[in-house]
Amino acid sequence: MKINLSINGKSYSQDVEPRLLLIHFLREVAGLTGTHMGCETSLCGACTVELNGKAIKSCTMFAVQANGAEIVTVEGLANNGKLDPVQEAFWNEHGLQCGFCTPGMIMASKQILDRNPSPTEEEVRHGLEGNVCRCTGYQHIVNAVKAAAAGAGK
């Protein structure tokens, strides 16, 4: 099937198998390997990307379902080498260790802040419910999201 979609502002027009997962389209057709497959069942959130402004799990969506969509992946956040405030905050606050969950964490965190620019700690934790990190114990991730919120509010 032919699909047209935009990823990080760039247009793609491609024939794909109907069963091709969106994450495999991103990683192997578009060559954007920042989005990671962690569990194949939408439980860990490592594959989180933004689709038409909403955070979704790209491991349980077919590429054909994204026909016509505008997608943003972690590679699309930095602008001319300038990091997104959420990326910067993850770096400053040590919000990552092995880094495997990090692209999904950053995309989910952006979504939290899009919906609520100044979340409480509890709201941040609730917002990250769909993303698993096995390294950090989440505390520095919570700090990062709160720091990004504080920075954006300045």
Binding site: L32, T33, G34, T35, H36, T73, V74, E75, L77, A78, L83, Q87, F90, W91, L96, G99, F100, T102, P103, I106
Partner: peptide, 11 residues
């Protein structure tokens, strides 16, 4: 961290 937060690390 820069490679990890920008999705450019190689696993």
């Amino acid at each position: 961290d820069p490679r990890l937060i920008t999705g450019t690390a190689t696993y």
